[in-house]
Design a protein around this nucleic acid. Sequence first.
DNA 1: TTGTAGGCGTTATCAC
DNA 2: GTGATAACGCCTACAA
Lengths: 358, 358
Amino acid sequence: MAKKPSEQQRERSRPRKGVDVLDDPSGPTRPPTLETVAARAGVSRATASRVVNHLDRVAPHVVASVNAAIEELGYVPNQAARSLARRRTAVIAVVIPESTERLFADPFFATVVQGAAAHLRGTDYTLNLVLGSDQEDKSRRYLTGGNVDGVLVVSQHEGDLPLTRLGLSVPIVFAGRPAVDFGEHGHFVDVDNRAAAATGVRHLVERGRSRIATIAGAQDLAAGRDRLAGWQDVLTDAGFDSDLVEVGDFTPESGTVAMERLLDGPEFDAVFAANDQMAFGAISALARAGRSVPGDVAVVGFDDDQFSRAARPTITTVHQPAREMGAVMAAHLLALLAGERVDQVTVLPTRLVVRESS
Amino acid sequence: MAKKPSEQQRERSRPRKGVDVLDDPSGPTRPPTLETVAARAGVSRATASRVVNHLDRVAPHVVASVNAAIEELGYVPNQAARSLARRRTAVIAVVIPESTERLFADPFFATVVQGAAAHLRGTDYTLNLVLGSDQEDKSRRYLTGGNVDGVLVVSQHEGDLPLTRLGLSVPIVFAGRPAVDFGEHGHFVDVDNRAAAATGVRHLVERGRSRIATIAGAQDLAAGRDRLAGWQDVLTDAGFDSDLVEVGDFTPESGTVAMERLLDGPEFDAVFAANDQMAFGAISALARAGRSVPGDVAVVGFDDDQFSRAARPTITTVHQPAREMGAVMAAHLLALLAGERVDQVTVLPTRLVVRESS
DNA sequence: TTGTAGGCGTTATCAC
DNA sequence: GTGATAACGCCTACAA
């Protein structure tokens, strides 16, 4: 029997070619291809492909035998080939812009990413981590060069203008609304930081506090500015002074330092921190200074992360649905990829969680 | 809509095809291909490819014109096609096994990942996040199915046996040595947790403490067990009782709770926590209980993360080079991918950082 | 319902 | 030095 093209092909692509792993006697065995599966099941590649992709119109017994072959061979589709043919990559990039990279350790981010990952499980999408260097042309090109189907920007988000532009070529969903104008491109999942912060501060007012300080977050991030504004709003409404402001950077350390500075200044009986990590740091400083919480100073945080539960006293805080944000971001991106329309801005609800510190 | 084959074909590769983004009048323009670049530069795809890949043997003026074309068109290589042709993906998976997923928010992990990402910047490798579901066949298959060139397992690492097996088909580097036997496959970057913990505890002994408790980490993780063992070692050597053990799970909350339990028991004058987050939580509990640190109770943590600096008093801790671990993991993986030999186990140094809490 | 064949964008092996 | 051309593994009209 004369060799069919396919056979020649096989021969040419025998294991061991090119790869130089040395000491594995069996040789770096090449993963089975659809071709292999098809041969084993006694069908054509096309049919095997149909089974793999769960298309109908395939006879049940054929499905069975192909699946058996897949099982026996441990066949896994080659994504590269699939991407090439389908002209979509099944890759979603998770971008942590440089401006936010040092915040990567923030549990809020981790939780958002987990939410997105969880939502994507079950789909065949894969998450691609892009850390830092937002200005750099390299990553922008990577993102726009058809290497990813969509982009998730997990960031409390500042301008990141260059990223917003990405929206032109690839669907993109941000965590957090940008302060700047973003035109028609880009989608955003956010909470109303300003109103949410106000809720927390108002709670302090209702508890009878009148000298309310704040430990603000980084002011180059929208979340930082908005929460500060929310604090301001309430104090203004109440006719209180809003002069006690220290700016941190969302890290626990900065919370401690900010509180130490506050303690050096005029008296106050409450503090609103822009996130729980800073609140925790602040409580640490208060404890050392011999101020009781909430006796001398009531504390309210933001996020409702594990630190608000770890502190003693436990911290009253504004709950932010981080996990859900990630999930919604992923869901919206999937919708966009499916060609559906999605609201450009989605605001998720927050709620006050009252604990011991207030 | 009857159309001649040729026409349909054309249409198929015309812009705007298939994708139904509605309001962009210019249509989703397809990224330029090498073909385009080549045409524009007046050379063949082969030559264009040579330029893109910086191969020599190309006339300088040709290089120039091709680069010009690339620049003008904003050409970016299609990774899928490249992967297919080169038979390598340029993708490195970062796996957070299910057993460790809830620890994702731990700054230690984030820092390790950042270290790896930083090391990979400049290379054309891309990081693929694989969260959870280590048992699930799906991710294992994904990892072994030729979709990634290598795997980084960022975990304090338990058995994760299934993952160790991966080493058979794909190079894999773990953060943390497994407790179990791992044969010849798999590479590990670690610190000597037991000895490092001992350093911290010994410091407490030298400070004159004799009733030293510990807040251990999760005992299903090697790091948790080893640090507990290190604590035990020192107490045994010193002839002290080692009965004061509370087990946490590395979260700040668990540190708080553990300390509260310790405070309910026999007296003690020092505590060694298996990480800084738990130490921070513990200090919070101590503060509320009216115990002074280090006066009544000296505290030593582990990691040297931002929390050890945020606490008041600041926390004496065992520094672990998290960022470097990530970088070394990446470096080793790259070496393996290049076919080089790499030590199967690499132990990075730790050091005691003395601060106020001891 | 199933098979045939062409194409997805690059790389790599040859000749020239 | 440069250009055809055959893979790479899979998808998908179209034909059968």
